[in-house]
Design a protein around this nucleic acid. Structure first.
Lengths: 192, 192
DNA sequence: TTGATTGTCTAGCGGTGCTAGGATTCGAAT
DNA sequence: ATTCGAATCCTAGCACCGCTAGACAATCAA
């Protein structure tokens, strides 16, 4: 039985290697550079090995996206935990979100820009995605204001953050004004 | 001289045909289906003809994006012109924007999701893009509120709309709540 | 009518994601 | 220790991609 366990361990280890390599390559040279050939060469296996772990490139992107969702949720929770009061919590959340998008552009792309074959906002939505939304809802729900559904509010606030992240990423504006944008969003949208 | 003019006319006509076909194909089956081979076949010319009009596929996407920017600007201006008062103007703008994104998903993708090789917010930004931003600024600038730069406010409001459009496009939420999202954004962000 | 120029096409390059099928390794049973 | 069977992995190749060189045909000027 121990032999089989070792094999499973090695297999899981190799899967992590694939994802880490794909992510590293994507952050270095963009997702276009993440081809199955290059990826296979970097992990020192042949191409078909990739397909014994994932259905295809799309699923690799999706797996990286799920990793990213978990990290984003953790970053948001860490930031909000360290803040005092609803207003500061929301501001900290916004900063943490935009910071994550800026520091991990390829992962953020995998989550929202590329097709990772992930189902959003449905029954079969993967747990990390639901949890990332939950992390946002925890702090945003309390500032939705009277008569506004917390879920709807979270969606809109999130959308705003996503839009800002996207436009900044596209080099639309120097990052100097990031803090002002956050302040504006928080001041106007959140009801404290 | 008339011969040359006729040729130029025919050439311009063919360029329009290329763009219209690319756009149609993209709206029908997505941009992935817009390959140079398929596009060439549909316009009943060979592949290299495409490259006598555009540097490559990226530039075709970019051209469609510019068309879209002009149409979006026109749609926004038409909607705001028909509305009375700042509050209603902004609401009309938001509805027109989201409506455009929903009705022309492939064009919207070309503008913001795909790489069309376009420069944003720089000196060499194409005129249609600058004008689309200007169309937003015309109505949004007047509700930025005291002490807030109209440009910055427009950026943030636009980002919010873009985020909502993206999330709706990804099937995150049924379109029923579109109006509520618009109301929320307008009520909170705009200072009337 | 000739010659040159312009326009278009055929054919092909190197790359992509993905897969069939053969070779090899390796644990288990004799 | 040897053999067998299954699991594992790789070589080779498919159809397609964006893009281009070079041959060919049509068109115009002389």
């Amino acid at each position: 039985m121990s032999v089989q366990e070792r094999k499973e361990r090695e297999r899981a280890e190799r899967e992590r290697l694939i994802l880490a390599t794909a992510r590293e390559l994507a952050e270095q040279q963009g997702w276009d550079a993440v081809t199955t050939r290059r990826l296979a060469e970097r992990i020192e296996y042949s191409q078909p090995v990739l397909y014994s772990h994932f259905r295809g490139k799309r699923e690799i992107i999706g797996a990286v996206a799920l990793e990213g969702a978990a990290e984003l949720a953790a970053a948001v929770r860490a930031a909000t935990r360290a803040a005092n009061g609803p207003r500061e919590r929301v501001a900290a959340l916004a900063r943490a979100y935009l910071d994550f998008a800026a520091r991990n552009p390829a992962v953020y792309d995998a989550m929202f820009q590329l097709d990772g074959g992930l189902a959003f906002a449905q029954e079969d939505t993967p747990e990390p995605l639901k949890d990332a939304f939950a992390a946002l809802l925890e702090s945003l729900g309390e500032v939705a204001g009277e008569g506004i559904d917390p879920g709807l509010f979270t969606e809109v606030f999130w959308a705003s953050l996503h839009g800002v992240a996207t436009l900044v990423r596209a080099g639309r504006q120097p990052p100097e004004y990031a803090e002002q944008r956050v302040e504006l969003l928080v001041d106007r949208l959140a009801i404290v």
